[in-house]
Nucleic acid binder design. Sequence first.
DNA 1: ATGAAAGCGCTAACAA
DNA 2: TTGTTAGCGCTTTCAT
Lengths: 332, 332
Amino acid sequence: MATIKDVASKANLSVSTVSRYLNHHPYISDDKKQRIKAAMKELDYTPSSIATQLRSKKGNTIGILVSRITNPFFSYLVDAIEKEAKKSHYNVLIMQTYDDKKSEMNMLELLKQQVVSGLIMCSVEGDPATIQSYQEFGPIVLCNETMRGSLVPTVVTDQKSAVYDAMIYLADKGYQQIAYCTGGTLTNEGHGRSRTEGFEQALLEKQLPFKKDWIFRQVHTSQDGNDVADKIFSLPKEKRPEAIFTNSDEVAIGVMENMLQRGYKVPQDLAIIGFDNQPATSMLTVPLTTIAQPVAALGTEATNLLLAKIEDSSYEVDQSKLKLSLIKRKSA
Amino acid sequence: MATIKDVASKANLSVSTVSRYLNHHPYISDDKKQRIKAAMKELDYTPSSIATQLRSKKGNTIGILVSRITNPFFSYLVDAIEKEAKKSHYNVLIMQTYDDKKSEMNMLELLKQQVVSGLIMCSVEGDPATIQSYQEFGPIVLCNETMRGSLVPTVVTDQKSAVYDAMIYLADKGYQQIAYCTGGTLTNEGHGRSRTEGFEQALLEKQLPFKKDWIFRQVHTSQDGNDVADKIFSLPKEKRPEAIFTNSDEVAIGVMENMLQRGYKVPQDLAIIGFDNQPATSMLTVPLTTIAQPVAALGTEATNLLLAKIEDSSYEVDQSKLKLSLIKRKSA
DNA sequence: ATGAAAGCGCTAACAA
DNA sequence: TTGTTAGCGCTTTCAT
């Protein structure tokens, strides 16, 4: 591999001149530019971005943390982030947490080591204070996540009112007994807290009953949805909910699959609301009523915000692009 | 940020000793080990992986090229690769090509610059000779792709016979007029060539008719599938195909969606075969007959092969894990 | 078992 | 406008 030194000697110039050329410095005569260009071509020279990074402390890759890339919500988010980052010549390093703190710490260490120049967290597992403290090493932006009382810049939608609206929609349709799924543990912090607040507020306002048997924690996949349906339909008929609010379309699909296999009807035996409006949910056996998230906008806004922080400029998130909407179909 | 030098002076040792400690060198006395450990903790020291990389020429990130991460086939592939890479403490840098050579070249340059220590190409756009030449800078593995006459290590399934089998299945069911979708351009090289060979062989053997109007190129998304259906149903009834072989479930779903909206029946008016066996395809209005790919195995095998090359050892791909299978459902 | 010193490929004062 | 030089943080001979 040719180095800047090789280019310099081939062009009969000093390395600094070549370096200046590389960095589009002004004040460099045209004939030398030509000589440098020729030497580079001849040597098939590519600058070592590792060396540049060590010296200049500037990198061009950003980190993305997601819980599972196979969840379409996250793959669309990553898609938007990668596209937007590429526009500014940044690469993306992806890490899946699978809800494990350890991977999150790995990524935070990459920020500390300057392997990534900034970090978009689309999933947060660890302690807010720890995460916050890593901002010392580079900018962090939370995307579709929040942390209690933290000062980490955040790009979020109003999930609470979206869930509230969906619940009111169910109640107004006459559904009283509503089950609820969350990816989190239903403690005061953590996953899906704002969604749960919307759920609780609607319950309160509409005076709907709340049963522990109708609450399901840490459900994520369609397999989990299947298990949820197993539990619901093993309940005596009069103790079953009339509708279920799920935290993702994948879960909703699992519930539906299980029901259809048992010969139950959607929404007659159990109405289902999904979350995400994933492709194909309009094409299911029973088209899914669900909440659409502005996923591309979340990704681009988070990226622009992060890049602004990395480059010490400022960016105003356009909140008007970040609206959720209830997609009414047949399942509820 | 503390450096190795800071640690050394705090521990009253030379940087070399600290470096040895970092690299788990033998022959280093216990008391010094303790002093170093203490100094590191006190200074909250993390080695700069950039500096290490510059000096040692060894990195720990691998690159992945995919055409679109939102295609579930690729997100599951990335999932498998990331998990497997993580086991050996490698990070993954992802780039989407969106079928554009430029992104592919970007990634190849990252290999040249040693930003990534190796590359898994799950999508290939550029000229084989060019790609092959980049192996000089680091190992490349093709995953679910092939290149005519190239010496790039490859992990693939037998797509040709899977498509052939699916076509025979259709023919045996009585479907004679079969349309065909490809992501490529149907030239002799490039995308989906081996699938097309299976298609052609079945056509020949079963003496099925071939019509240009039934061939669709460069279709990828469900929107493309919708457009394909538009074209088919704008044909006079007697000139329409009886079945369609699509190159992905997304496309198949688009075709189906369009048909149902027009009030046509699947498979009566047009039988559909998908590709990928994506989640939810069993739950569609008309459950989709499709070809399941061993996507997790493709990912882990490609990763193990690449890591072996990076670390100069060898790995034998287990071909028995790489079988395709036809999933028979209602759509064809 | 430990240290001194050279240098990976590049950038950025400082001079000229 | 160009060159000289001193590092960035680390690894790795070569001594001791």
